[in-house]
Write a protein that binds this DNA or RNA. Structure first.
Lengths: 192, 192
DNA sequence: AGGGTGAGTGTCAGTCACTGACAATTGCTT
DNA sequence: AAGCAATTGTCAGTGACTGACACTCACCCT
């Protein structure tokens, strides 16, 4: 039956359909003029179901790769002992190249929407802060003192943002190259 | 008349009374279990008036000194030409010492509440991001290239946070001393 | 003194994000 | 076929936030 077909298909990948519907609606009408009920309807489910899959209306645009945090943590933990905190971070960032490349078609369309919506920018900052805290924690477990780890994590994240942007503008070079340049630039800045 | 006295007093400093009421209620019941109607009642006004003074329930804890942004902007604009971006930022931060000291009794009680509330931490990150953007903009107007200005502003803000924390823990030394140490530490980190 | 003016506030009605409780459905197991 | 666990639907409710409009009061002008 068509009915049965629809129902069974509508049961699959509800989460993904919600994300897709949200993305389209946010693009058409903008974030503010889109209601969670409309997103749910677009995915063929109830508003209540929306909130079973995502904590709030913003979170649906920030579904990070579940492998991201483990990857960073282990990369930092397994870095050579001789390296200083910033080198450790640089290596950890470089190890993300494949993952970031794979996820690019997923993350890219979201960036434009986020950039134009204050409420989403705020969430983006919070996400970055959460990752920065993760970096600091991983450094601490290597023996780096707490405050120093926080400082290194924040500075390292700044360098990563810088490298990420130039990487997007010039993908011909690998992320590692851009990272090396970014960290060198940061060093040069704090030199004088 | 008492009536007239009450009325006239209730008309004064509504904004301040709202902040005071919010602070007390957030402390007693916590942010989540406090409604904007309760805050308004505590200040002797209507809920509607709350939202005429503050954009939302979070913003009432983040009322920054109106002189902060102008101070940073002019300090950066008027810094000696010979200085590099990071030195410029260090000077600008140091120039805030008096203002930060004066506002301390106002800002300190808020920090504990913010630190224990995710929604408020998110807003705090957004505020920091806004100030960072201001720094980057001021650097750009000195001729620093856009991306470099952003990198410097983020790294500088990281150093400022570091210095601010150690300053709070050891106020016997001036902020300038802590800033000098923080920026030197940052340079040392990115060295190896 | 009387009338006007504008800023700040009160009142009311409404939208929408988000939550708890419970019933219904589905897919899978035994 | 019966049962179990996970997912969803349904319903009712709270609370943040907004728009529209009326009102009050300090201040100004003539």
């Amino acid at each position: 039956m068509e009915q049965a077909g629809l129902v069974s298909r509508s049961r699959q990948d509800v989460r993904g359909r919600l994300q897709q519907a949200a993305l389209e609606l946010y693009r058409e009408r903008g974030y503010d003029r889109t209601t969670t009920a409309e997103i749910a309807a677009g995915a063929g489910v109830t508003e209540r179901t929306f909130f079973r899959h995502f904590a709030d209306k913003r979170e649906i645009l920030f579904d990070e790769d579940p492998a991201l945090r483990p990857a960073l943590t282990t990369a930092i933990a397994e870095a050579p002992n001789a390296l200083g905190p910033m080198q450790v971070l640089r290596l950890a960032f470089a190890s993300l190249e494949q993952m970031l490349t794979d996820n690019r078609p997923f993350t890219e369309p979201r960036l434009a929407i986020i950039a134009g919506t204050p409420a989403l920018l705020e969430r983006a900052e919070a996400k970055t802060a959460g990752l920065t805290a993760l970096l600091a924690d991983a450094l601490r477990q290597r023996g780096v003192q707490e405050e120093l780890a926080t400082l290194a994590a924040r500075a390292g994240m700044a360098a990563f943002s810088h490298a990420g942007k130039s990487w997007r503008e010039d993908p011909s070079q690998g992320l590692g190259v851009h990272l090396e340049r970014a960290f060198r630039t940061l060093h040069g800045l704090s030199a004088s």
